[in-house]
């Protein structure tokens, strides 16, 4: 499986990464070399093997439904790039 430039551009778009003219060929090349590496998996038969999602053989813990987090808006917004009236500002959202 080998990616061409349009594949790489589609992936970059899905990942919301801008890519300029010079970068596209570089990323195409390095992604292809990584794909060659990971394609080694295909040679191994995994029929009937249960996928392992997590190394922890444990079950989800449950949290009591009690309010533990009080308003800390000022502290939490101290690093925000753009805030007004307690709202995070972003370019206009069009629905």
């Amino acid at each position: 499986m080998s990616l061409d430039r349009s594949d790489v551009e589609r992936i970059a778009h899905l990942a919301r990464l801008a890519m300029n003219e010079n970068e596209a060929p570089e990323y195409t090349e390095s992604l292809n070399s990584i794909l060659t590496l990971i394609d080694q998996l295909q040679a191994t038969s995994t029929d009937g093997v249960e996928p392992l999602a997590h190394p922890m053989d444990a079950v989800q813990r449950l949290r009591a439904d009690e309010v533990s987090e009080l308003n800390q808006r000022d502290a939490l917004q101290a690093c925000a790039p753009a805030v007004e009236n307690g709202l995070f500002l972003v370019p206009k959202v069009i629905e």
Binding site: A82, E84, N85, L87, F88, L89, V90, P91, K92, V93, E95
Partner: peptide
């Protein structure tokens, strides 16, 4: 997303 106008931006 709140669409009142914040200088052309939306508030979250």
């Amino acid at each position: 997303s709140l669409h009142e106008d914040f200088h052309g931006m939306s508030g979250i």
